[in-house]
Nucleic acid binder design. Structure first.
Lengths: 347, 347
DNA sequence: AGAAGGACTGGAACTGGTTCCACACCCTAA
DNA sequence: TTAGGGTGTGGAACCAGTTCCAGTCCTTCT
């Protein structure tokens, strides 16, 4: 930590150690053979001069930025779900001496691909090796990223409007089996009148609804979908749906909410009407957001390992970078129903 | 978007446009004079060849990475507060074509500075121009960052254990005036028995307590501090404090919570005991986290503009980079009490 | 007409690493 | 004794930009 000259180059180190520049490079990359004596001399010179190699120069030659971009689309803030994915990406990346650039983007699903104004990171060449797409992803963005030949991996649960099985690397979690498990659990606890609350125009909520439906069907029960028109938000949707749920002829004993925000909205509205959860009605959510534990009683919900999603995205992107010709892969991570306090055992 | 040759250099563009390489560079940097005709020819060649300049090469020459690191310390997850600061940093940065690298770090306040294992980003030279420190900051980390001569700006509210007015660039918000305003508001609404709940061994909670105390004193009221031993978390602290608050001889009519998490814990425990907020007791928080609006009734609290903190950090860091010799500056951003539903007008 | 000045342009030199070829040296085998 | 192979080393060439100096050309002034 003594007087560190602002810049030292390998040439100066070479002079100080009385060796050639190639040798310095070899020592730095701890690769090919350098004799024990020479290596020691070089390391000593490096220490004396406080030399730190210039990362930019190496990157230029290596044609690797050792950096990926985490691109969050169409979210006005980095909410806990995506924040944890980012955290997963970063912690895995830093172990491999890879860096993670954070960028945000707002675009409309109707903008033509080549008119999407990508963040500066993606406009320059060589700055990053690849992109991890998070947030809501529409086909035009994917096409745009493809057009600049940027390798990418998408967090697939929020992909919207992809006609058929479009081919790209993706990582997601299992919406279908999450609600299937939750529904089976409710049925095992004696529930028969179970409704699903959620706007199924969102593909991920639709998949969750399908899981619920499967659970109902395999038990010869009648699936019921509750939707509201023009909700302001998921929470608002939950609050508005309560009336329609309670007023059904045969009153449901349990609700499968499309996500935790909806569950929260339902719960709040139920509280206000004096309907006790879980005594009078049971409730399960999906996502296991922080709020799930804040509710009283804490919400039984479907857990998703967000860090693992991030880690898997990063892992897959690195594979893609090393094998550009590799076939596309799609990982679906398992989800797990967690029992807390909002489901009552009937009978 | 036709066939884009993987790599094109300015020399090829120069050849295609029939000009010299210097001219290409001048056009790219839109700086010095290039005749209208030449510029058009060059731009056309760039478009035809699908040329995108190599960012690494420019960075190397310019000796600027145009990149800063957002370093989050000692948080096991990027919670909404810091996530929004990051978002503020990024949105301001991207307007200036600066990039933001996300990195996390865990360290103990007792590790000697030179033993702190910095993330890879900070170990290489030239990768980033400076650092924005967020999360909990102890003196040893600051010393470490100084020792590698890395310009930095710290988000100062969570700085812990800085003996005297140590000199460095910092941005924070006004803890003192936040609770002062909140306390004055409560007093204006007729409250006299007001207590403060929070563990004041955290410097920021201590400052908030001082603001509360000031508010009480200037109205000749007696400040009361409620603390609990060994809480697991702020939420837990809130829950545990309720007993001590309610059992006071002259029962308080209002509680100033050290932060929203404590307020949430208090509220929950009050609900359980059947004590109505705000009918039987008023409650105010601090931070304006998302949860504040989820509570029922929504929490009156002190708002902090997190995006603005991020933006100011970035702005200050850029100034520091342009004027390395400039005197250190400390910005304190204002806070604002927001009225929602948890304060009752007495009398 | 000639000089002076400004606008524009070409390209060599440069940045700070990596790569690779040539070469020195030593040891062993023929 | 000489050829041959392996190990270790020096440094030119390179990457893809920027910088800057010198030179051309065209005005404008004297």
């Amino acid at each position: 930590m003594e007087a560190v000259p602002t810049k030292t180059t390998i040439r100066e180190v070479a002079r100080a150690a009385g060796v050639g520049i190639g040798t310095i490079s070899r020592v730095l990359n701890s690769s090919s053979q350098v004799s024990r004596k020479t290596r020691a001399r070089v390391l000593d010179a490096i220490r004396r001069l406080g030399f730190r190699p210039n990362a930019q120069a190496r990157r230029m030659l290596k044609r690797r930025a050792e950096m990926v971009c985490f691109l969050l689309s169409n979210r006005d803030f980095l909410h806990p779900f995506h924040a944890r994915i980012l955290q997963g990406v970063e912690s895995y990346a830093s172990g491999l001496k890879q860096h993670v650039l954070f960028a945000a983007l707002h675009y409309s699903p109707r903008t033509p691909p080549d008119r999407i104004d990508l963040p500066p990171v993606l406009q320059e060449r060589g700055l990053i090796d690849g992109v991890i797409l998070a947030g809501t992803i529409y086909p035009n963005l994917l096409r745009r990223i493809e057009s600049i030949r940027m390798p990418f991996v998408a967090f697939s649960n929020n992909v919207v409007g992809m006609d058929d099985e479009q081919q790209f690397d993706q990582v997601g979690f299992d919406d279908f089996n999450g609600t299937l498990q939750a529904t089976r659990y409710l049925i095992a606890k004696g529930h028969r009148q179970i409704v699903f609350a959620g706007d199924v125009s969102y593909p991920w909520l639709h998949r969750r609804f399908e899981g619920y439906r499967q659970g109902m069907r395999e038990n010869k029960l009648n699936p019921v979908l509750i939707t509201a028109r023009n909700p302001l938000s998921f929470g608002d949707f939950g609050q508005r749906s309560v009336g329609r749920i309670l007023s059904r002829r045969s009153r449901p004993t349990a609700v499968v909410a499309g996500n935790d925000e909806i569950a929260f909205g339902l719960w709040r509205s139920l509280c206000r009407r004096g309907v006790k959860v879980p005594d009078q009605i049971s409730l399960v959510g999906f996502d296991d957001r922080e709020e799930a534990v804040l509710m009283d009683p804490p919400l039984s919900t479907v857990r998703v390992d967000k860090e693992e999603i991030g880690e898997t995205c990063m892992k897959m992107l690195l594979e893609r970078l090393h094998h550009p010709q590799m076939a596309f892969s799609q990982r679906v991570l398992p989800t797990e129903f967690v029992t807390r306090g909002t489901v009552r055992h009937l009978q």
